Amino acid sequence: MKYFWGLALCLILLGCDSDPGNRNPFLQEVRFRFELDLNLPAYVNLNTIGNPVYVDNPGVGIRGAFVMRNGLDSFIAFEASCPNQTPSACSTMEIEGQNVVCPCDGLTYSLFTGQLLNRPDDGNRYFDLLFYRTTFNGNVVTISN
């Protein structure tokens, strides 16, 4: 019976191994927390659904974050680095309407879903945008990872 419990414990521990195959090898996941006061002029676009804002404050993500209101009381935020490029001089994405485009490779991503919109059909693995958590309280949006 003692061997049974030992074997069961080993199987449980092996079963808890995380899947590194889902992690983006190009981007490190940095820890941060940043508050955006919607009363400030820099974030006034967030008072309307579908108007993204680029937050490039030091310590926010790797290259900053894109934040967008996607409902009355909900927001979505993504890393501003191209998810399929190692960070470099050209790897900060640019806003084009409700999408962002990576200047390094021309790939386009939706700011509503984070999904790659023009995924190449070349057999390579491509990553979607790196998602950040958001909370909304009063007039303050908090983004964090």
Rank of each mutant, 00 (worst) to 15 (best):
N99H: 03
L117P: 09
Y109P: 01
D17G: 11
F78R: 03
F34I: 12
Y109F: 15
F131T: 05
C82Q: 00
C90I: 08
G59A: 13
Y54H: 13
D37A: 00
N45L: 11
V141E: 05
P52D: 04
C90V: 09
L46H: 02
F131W: 06
P120I: 05
I12L: 15
T134E: 09
L11Y: 09
D56E: 05
A42W: 02
T135P: 10
A42D: 03
I76N: 02
G71T: 08
C90H: 05
P41E: 08
V140P: 02
T134W: 07
N51C: 12
L46S: 03
I12G: 09
L129H: 04
L38M: 07
Q85D: 15
T113P: 10
D122S: 11
S74V: 03
N24G: 11
P58N: 08
N51Q: 15
R23Y: 13
T142H: 00
Q115E: 15
I143R: 02
V60E: 05
D37I: 00
D122F: 10
S110P: 01
G114Y: 02
C82R: 01
Q28I: 05
G114K: 01
F78S: 05
Q28M: 06
P83S: 13
S74E: 07
I76Y: 00
N45S: 13
M93N: 05
R31T: 09
G61V: 02
R33A: 10
T48Y: 08
N124W: 06
A65D: 10
C16S: 14
A77S: 13
C90P: 04
I62C: 07
C82P: 00
F127I: 05
R31S: 11
D56R: 08
E29W: 09
F127N: 06
I12R: 06
I143V: 15
I95F: 03
N84C: 09
G15C: 09
L129F: 04
N124R: 15
D37N: 14
I76W: 05
C102S: 05
G21N: 13
F26C: 05
D19R: 12
Y126T: 13
Q28L: 12
L130R: 06
G6D: 05
L14K: 06
T48G: 00
M93E: 04
N99L: 07
Q115C: 11
C104A: 14
N145V: 00
D56F: 07
E79D: 15
F75L: 08
P120L: 03
A77T: 07
T86Q: 14
V30R: 10
V100P: 01
G97I: 10
R31I: 07
L117R: 15
G50C: 11
N22R: 14
N45M: 08
S110W: 04
R69T: 04
A80R: 01
C102R: 01
N24T: 06
G97L: 10
Q98I: 12
G71P: 11
N84R: 06
R119D: 12
A77E: 01
G106K: 04
F75N: 04
V53I: 12
G138A: 06
I76H: 04
Y54V: 12
I76M: 11
D56C: 07
Q85M: 08
Y109A: 00
V100E: 00
E96F: 11
V140C: 03
A42H: 04
N22H: 07
N118F: 01
V60F: 09
V67R: 01
Q85A: 10
F78W: 10
L111C: 12
C102T: 01
S144Q: 09
D121E: 14
T113N: 11
A42S: 10
N51H: 10
